[in-house]
Each structure stands twice: as C-alpha cells, then as structure tokens.
C-alpha cells in the first residue's frame, strides 16, 4: 500500500468574525509535492483558510496540522519553511527590486551576500534580472507579481502558498506565472493556491476543492470533478428567456439532457453534444444563438454553487 504524506491537514476548521461565519467546518488534506487549489468566489473562505495556514489568523475551532504539528497560530519555525504570496503585493516601495529580496531574505536570517546571490538567481529565473536596480514603483503589475513570487522563494520553501496569484494580471503575465509554478512543482515543491479563475485551477492544480460560503462542496482532480458532477458536453443557448420555446424542457428530457438557467441564458448539459446540436433547429432554437463546447470546471462550479438554477 502506498503511504501518502500529508503536509497539511484540516478537520472541521471553522472561523467566525463577529457574527459572520467565514468558515463552516471544512476538512482537507494536502499531499507533499502536489498542487492543491482552493476555488471559489470572493468571500467563499479561501483567504481565511490561507491566513490560518500562514499565521495571520488563529485556529479557534477545529484542527489544523502542518507537518504533523497542531496549529493555533503558525509559529516562526514553521513559517520559515513556507513561502507566501499574499493577495496584496506588499512590496517595499522605498527599495529597489533586488533590495526587496535582500531585506526579505534578512527576515529569514540570510546574510546580505547570501540573499543578494539568491535574489539575483531568482530574478534571473523570473526573467527580470535586468530590473534588479529599478524601483519597485516603476514595475508593471505582472512584474510586481513575479517579484512577490521571487520573494516568497528566497528561503527555499517546501510549501508555497499563493493567494490569488494572478488576479489583475493580463493573459501573457498570467501564463508566465503559471509556467513558473509548473517548474516549481516539477522540483517537488508543494503548491497551495486560491483562485477564482477556473482556467487557472484546471491548468495547474492536481487536486482542488470548490468552496462556497465557508463550505467545501467537492474535492478531486479537475477532470474527476468534471466527470463526476456534470455531463461531458454543454450547449449554451444565449436567447432572452421569453424567446426560449416552452417545450425545451420536454425535448431535453427525451435526450437525457440537464437544463441549467444561468444569468445570460440556458445551459444544456448532455452526453452527446453533436446529436443534440442537430436537434436544435427542430426545436425552433436558432443555432447562431448557441454554442457547443465540452464541459469544464466552470460548469461544475455553476452547478455546485447553485449560481445556475436547475430546471
């Protein structure tokens, strides 16, 4: 039997801020070397969970263990083995790019020359070595984010926690960040990330949990979740609701398709997308208002969070 090494595990983790219940008893286990994602909207409880792991929030209810050590408030010994990419950039605007890394390395007890050497290497890895003497303020959003990731790596952490690492980045910068994360994973580093981008979760997470209103709704690999929760194809019908023929439900039923009403139309989930596509014209639904595609994590998310209403 394979023994799985869990680096972080949580049982029934809850958190209350005043009368607001941010976490309602979540449990998860993160294996060494995997990329584990927390997917959910703002306010789902992802950041609260991250803050507990990296020591900005106390564990009041439930249990959290990191490397088999029970946690109330993550102590410095554990934090020295973590790399944190917080949601805000929190870079030092008074310092240059390299100085930011130097100063941060100093917090981990690295000497100035050690952190300079490591810092340059990290900047090189991030493709921004030529910026080493630039002021942080002059960097673009994408470069700032990469610098924050470089900063999180200065102590050569065993676990990296990324709280929405690509929010606000343009697609090109986002792909650069993903590339870096994949290469870190290939070096055996455990990655934990939160995101509300379904594509990001699909692209880089080995396993993920879908969070909504302080609860975990599902857990698995992106492919597993898609296979388990939704039918393989979806036809998006973008018509005003009054223009959708009333018989659609009946028709769909005959083809074992599931109908989900979403904000901008109706989603039709089915086993055989192409067969159903051919039927549309018989149902008085113009094909130009429709779009056939394979199901993805977003569909899982819509279904589980009830953002779409099942008909």
């Amino acid at each position: 039997m394979i023994k799985l090494d869990y680096v972080i595990s949580a049982q029934n983790l809850s958190k209350k801020y005043g009368s607001f219940q941010a976490l309602k008893g979540i449990s998860f286990r993160i294996q060494e070397g995997e990329c584990f994602g927390f997917l959910g909207h703002n306010g789902a409880g992802k950041s609260t969970t991250m803050r507990m792991i990296y020591g900005l929030s106390t564990v009041d209810e439930g249990q959290l263990t990191i490397w088999d050590q029970p946690i109330t408030l993550t102590p410095p010994e554990i934090k020295s083995r973590l790399g944190i990419v917080p949601q805000e950039d929190s870079l030092d605007p008074d310092l240059t790019v390299l100085e930011n890394l130097e100063v941060y390395g100093g917090l981990f007890g690295l000497s100035r020359s050690q952190s300079q050497m490591l810092g340059r290497q990290l900047l090189d890895d991030m493709g921004m070595l030529e910026k080493e003497h630039d002021s942080v303020e002059s960097l673009s959003g994408g470069l700032k984010r990469r610098l924050v990731i470089a900063r999180a790596l200065i102590n050569q952490p065993q676990i990296i926690i990324l709280d929405e690492p690509t929010t606000g980045l343009d697609p090109q910068a986002r792909h650069q960040v993903w590339q870096k994360l994949r290469s870190l994973k290939s070096q055996g580093v455990t990655l934990i990330l939160t995101t509300h981008y379904m594509e990001e979760a699909t692209q880089i997470c080995d396993r993920l949990v879908i969070m909504h209103e302080g609860l975990i709704l599902a857990e698995g690999s992106p492919m597993e979740l898609i296979a388990r929760c939704v039918l393989p194809y979806v036809i998006e019908i973008h018509l005003p609701i009054q223009d959708v023929p009333e018989q659609l439900m009946k028709h769909a039923g005959r083809f074992n398709a599931e109908v989900l009403q979403v904000a901008n139309g109706i989603f039709l989930y089915c086993q055989d997308g192409h067969r159903l596509w051919e039927q549309l014209k018989h149902w008085d639904i113009p094909q130009h208002a429709c779009f056939l595609r394979p199901s993805n994590l977003e569909d899982v998310f819509l279904k589980l969070t009830g953002k779409g209403e099942e008909q």
């Binding site: 990296y54 944190i84 870079l91 941060y104 917090l107």
Partner: peptide
Amino acid sequence: HAMLAGPV
C-alpha cells in the same frame, strides 16, 4: 503583513 509571512 509581509513581514509576518516570514518567521517573525
């Protein structure tokens, strides 16, 4: 916040 993410 940034410092607290380190071992302090």
